[in-house]
């Protein structure tokens, strides 16, 4: 089940990924995120994935691609709240998450976006 949400806070979009996300939902989410960037005119997107137990190669690619798309639209993307085991899996599998900045948690990411650093 997909319980993900997209919320606008100040000048940023906060996307919380939750529950099981299959390939189709991932693509739908990507669509929705991109639409929301336009609609809310935000300067940054924070994708919060602390609720995800698993990031497979497809998910990693989607994340990386989404970040590049957002970049093209002139906004920044932050990945926040990766779990240690997820990070280890991504590194061990040699997955590439290019173009995405990471932050320890949502708070840090929002602060960085607000500070314009």
């Amino acid at each position: 089940m997909n319980k993900s949400s997209i919320v606008k806070i100040h000048n940023a979009l906060v996307v919380t990924l939750q529950g099981e996300i299959d390939d189709r939902t991932a693509l739908e989410l990507q669509q929705e995120i991109l639409q929301s960037v336009i609609r809310y005119q935000v300067s940054g997107v924070v994708i919060e994935i602390s609720q995800l137990d698993l990031v497979d190669s497809y998910m990693a690619r989607i994340l990386s691609e989404t970040a590049r798309m957002i970049k093209l639209m002139g906004a920044e993307t932050f990945l926040a709240g990766l779990r240690p085991m997820v990070a280890v899996t991504i590194v061990e599998m040699g997955l590439n998450i290019d173009g995405v900045k990471t932050a320890l948690n949502l708070e840090v990411a929002l602060e960085v976006l607000k500070g314009g650093r």
């Binding site: 990945l79 926040a80 990766l82 240690p84 997820v86 990070a87 280890v88 991504i90 590194v91 061990e92 998450i97 900045k101 990471t102 932050a103 320890l104 948690n105 840090v108 990411a109």
Partner: peptide, 12 residues
């Protein structure tokens, strides 16, 4: 390098 990559993924 792997450790560094994992740390970076966490935002460190």
């Amino acid at each position: 390098l792997k450790t560094a990559a994992a740390v970076r993924l966490l935002g460190g």
